[in-house]
């Protein structure tokens, strides 16, 4: 079952990669990248068990941290054009 999980995770990452390439919007691509990151965390964990080396979990944990920070950082960069920007844009509430 662990081998099956690893295969399915790779297949599903390939499917998400198609979405990342197709877009159409920038946010679709960021979503796909974030989703591939989450799948990669699971894949690393599952592969560690498949290989009998659960130490891989440390890498999965680090990857989970980086994945989150990277998504937020990319979004911030595209919103402000500057990673060091402080403050909040004024809210536009169009109903």
């Amino acid at each position: 079952m662990i081998a099956a999980a690893a295969v399915v995770l790779v297949v599903s990452m390939a499917m998400v990669l198609v979405r990342a390439l197709r877009g159409p919007t920038l946010y679709d691509r960021i979503l796909a990248a974030n989703h591939m990151g989450s799948s990669a965390v699971l894949l690393i964990a599952v592969y560690g068990f498949f290989d009998g080396r659960p130490e891989f979990l440390d890498i999965a944990l680090a990857y989970a941290l980086i994945n989150f920070i990277a998504t937020i950082a990319v979004l911030k960069y595209f919103a402000y054009g500057d990673l060091g920007a402080a403050g909040v844009r004024e809210e536009r509430n169009d109903a």
């Binding site: 399915v8 995770l9 297949v11 599903s12 990452m13 499917m15 998400v16 198609v18 979405r19 979503l31 796909a32 989703h35 799948s39 699971l42």
Partner: peptide
């Protein structure tokens, strides 16, 4: 559910 999510993404 992993497959369901990726299929939905497509």
């Amino acid at each position: 559910f992993t497959l369901a999510g990726s299929l939905g993404m497509l």
